[in-house]
């Protein structure tokens, strides 16, 4: 099962973990076969929020919600259950300065004969 680990940091700790430290943990996760994907993000002042209403695209400068802790990056990990996902999240270096929100990934609920959106994500994945 996949879990998305969202990394949140406040401005004061935005650069608390060097890229080298983070890369080390990514290597660890890859070696353990637990890493699915992950990327660090530019700060929220670089964000654009997109909405479509009545067919019209409207744009806003900045993130969807202004909060003290801002989304700084994500790890998509593979774990057997929440306990393992929590252990993996606790190892993410910024966990010591900010917060990691762990969210279970769900499968799209579609009829089995419908076209699969991506070949590597079978519906009801129970690896």
């Amino acid at each position: 099962m996949k879990y998305l680990c969202l990394v949140y940091l406040d401005a004061e700790h935005w650069n608390a973990c060097s890229d080298g430290v983070c890369a080390e943990y990514v290597h660890e996760l890859v070696a353990a076969g637990r890493m699915v994907a992950g990327e660090p993000l530019h700060p929220t002042h670089t964000a654009t929020t997109v909405r479509v209403r009545n067919g019209e695209v409207t744009l806003f400068d900045g993130p969807f919600a202004e909060t003290r802790e801002m989304l700084a990056g994500f790890y998509l990990v593979e774990a057997n259950d929440l306990n393992e996902a929590i252990r993996l999240a606790a190892g993410i270096p910024p966990a010591r300065y900010g917060s990691i929100e762990v969210r279970p990934v769900r499968a799209l609920q579609v009829e089995p004969n419908a076209t699969a959106p991506y070949s590597n994500h079978p519906t009801g994945d129970r690896s």
């Binding site: 057997n80 259950d81 929440l82 306990n83 762990v102 279970p104 769900r106």
Partner: peptide
């Protein structure tokens, strides 16, 4: 169910 909290007695470390 959704977060798959395991049905287990935690190991000695936890």
């Amino acid at each position: 169910t959704a977060a798959r909290i395991p049905y287990e007695v935690p190991g000695p470390a936890e």
